[in-house]
Design a protein around this nucleic acid. Structure first.
Lengths: 167, 167
DNA sequence: TCCGAGGGTGTTACAGTGTATCAGCCCCGA
DNA sequence: TCGGGGCTGATACACTGTAACACCCTCGGA
């Protein structure tokens, strides 16, 4: 994970790297392949999350999508988010009740790790097969059959550490 | 369920193993040592969580503690829970908005893993220094300085798997 | 003895998060 | 043309969590 350093930071508004378009294109492709409906609402919700540059709550999203003449209720957003999370287009951050776009198209069940920065509020994700291995062993030892998991770390991201160091 | 297999299972109401008393005693000792106040409310909340045998929400706890003549408001429960989690006497399960007693007195910062059973709703915890090692390496590679983390796995616990197998 | 500070609790109010339910719409196939 | 299924809109509601303020108690000074 050397080059790919683009945390969903506050202020990092949708570059060409991870901005709306790339995610949307991936979503369109995926929905075509799996014969799913990529409706306007779902597209709009995904776009909002992708362009926000920071984790958004469902009600934030509803507000962003609402405009005079079109009111988007939170419940509709939740349904769209259910769809998007189910197909790994966005991730839910349990410790924040918030959603971020899925940065990479990682393989199925890759060991996802979310890093949540206390300073800038940004969230970045990475993967680690080694952690997944160890976790698998640990669970096997306990006789537990896993179906899904969340691993979220709170702390200080690289950018904020450097900023502090410089200050 | 051999020796130390005592998930906080539905129906597993407070054995002598992990039941209220042991946890309460540990809490009393800890509070004496650190010169903290183990008040009636804090004790009652801890007791409720320990005896429930399953993860409880704050409002569940408030209800359990309330009786004719004493109404315990959720906000008071939250304050007690803040205290108890801060001192590692209970843990918060982020993916469920619920609380369980801390089963073992594990060392500081031990890599805690929560296993949440979909069938019985029980939650068991374990630790794995190996996972912690790997996680540390992964975060270092990303330049991220961790402060706290959560690792929660959903699936099927040993007891439920056996029950299914037998059925 | 009085007084003030600090911590814990009670209470009300409210913000934020998530779900249940029903009705309407649209598309597609029989 | 008629259903059925999937998506959306809308209302209502339950659950989760926090803010703000008042009260009480204890403890250490003045």
């Amino acid at each position: 994970m050397t080059e790919h350093r683009h945390p969903h930071e506050a202020g990092h508004e949708a570059g060409p790297c991870c901005g709306g378009d790339a995610v949307i294109e991936r979503a369109e492709r995926l929905c075509r392949e799996r014969d799913l409906q990529f409706t306007r609402l779902r597209r709009d919700v995904l776009k909002a999350v992708a362009e926000a540059g920071r984790p958004l709550g469902a009600y934030d999203i509803a507000e962003r999508l609402s405009e005079p003449g079109r009111r988007v209720a939170a419940v509709s957003v939740y349904r769209a988010l259910d769809f998007l999370t189910e197909h790994d287009l966005v991730h839910r951050i349990a410790s924040r009740n918030a959603f971020v776009p899925c940065a990479h198209s990682h393989g199925e069940g890759a060991g996802l790790v979310f890093m949540i920065c206390r300073s800038c509020g940004g969230i970045d994700e990475t993967t680690s097969p080694e952690i997944e291995d160890q976790l698998g062993r640990t669970l096997a030892r306990a006789g537990f059959r896993p179906a899904s998991r969340i691993l979220e770390v709170e702390g200080e991201c690289e950018a904020c550490l450097q900023r502090e160091g410089a200050a």
